[in-house]
Amino acid sequence: MFLEVNDLTVDFHTEDGVVHAVDGLSFEVDRGSTLGIVGESGSGKSVTNLAILGLHNPDTAKLSGSIKLDGHELLGAPQRELEKLRGNKMAMIFQDPLTSLSPFHTVGQQIAEVYRKHKGVSKSVARERAIEMLDRVGIPQPKIRVDEYPHQFSGGMRQRAMIAMALVCDPGLLIADEPTTALDVTVQAQILDLLRDLQEQTGTAIIMITHDLGVVANTAHDVLVMYAGRAVERGTMREVLREPRHPYTWGLLGSMPSLNHPVDVPLEPVRGTPPSLINVPPGCPFHPRCDYAKLLGPGVCTGERPELSPHRGHGDACYLPLKQKAELRSQHGKQPGKEAS
């Protein structure tokens, strides 16, 4: 596996207490495949990925576990070593390309400096490479646009430039943190197509962070559903979207509009709010919002924390027996989150 994350924990020490942003998270991504990480805001998606890049402030964030990139342990590696990997072996594209690109440097400078830094080439070689990358991500007239500033680009063009910058050194891992959230819907599809095409050409492993299940369905091979800093369900895209097992995944799918959704039935959001990460509920962190917790005996969901099971393949972290979940799903049709009460 190209990236292996094992039992990753990220705690932030704040004045109000310790925030358990990520708690015992494990997953892996292979070259050429895309892992979609799904969850509400504050579920630990971005924290996880900043941890992979080593971008957390060591004064406030305490990390434990293991993150291996191509066999090398990243956790606890010195900053200098991580600097050599960032932008080179692993890269990230962010949500808002306007604020994520420096307003003070031309698009070309921003792409070229990554290449110069990691490949040690001359300015002119790096500039040629920047033009080549702009061309590859579909920016017209790259020789002219290379000298323009981000504010002279449209939103979609900026995100393309961002992708060019991330991929300039052919990184083995690309982390895309909600890359389409800030874009128009038509542009969103173009950007996703572009990422898929580039992945086919380069074989990059992609982690796609999103709260949009449509994006997951479009791009991901595997899916990890996160809740309160933990993985609650893991499987292939088809498994998770077609046969979701965890009640939280049911809720997510049930709250998503679809074209064949009956007009007169209102969409059902997941009720309640995500828990405080300072006082995470004991046991299954989802139990206060779960309609099915009472089907199990008292103390089951509040007792010990459920682990992902089975250990490999399609698994979820829930005490409800698989058979019972299958029954619930068939009783309530395709979206069991809906009618349950």
Partner: peptide
């Protein structure tokens, strides 16, 4: 700022991030 985070994410050294960005 986001663009400072981007600079770090692409491997710029600490000094360059502080002074240039």
């Amino acid at each position: 700022e986001d663009y400072v985070r981007t600079a770090r994410a692409k491997g710029m050294s600490g000094r360059s991030v502080v002074l240039r960005f």
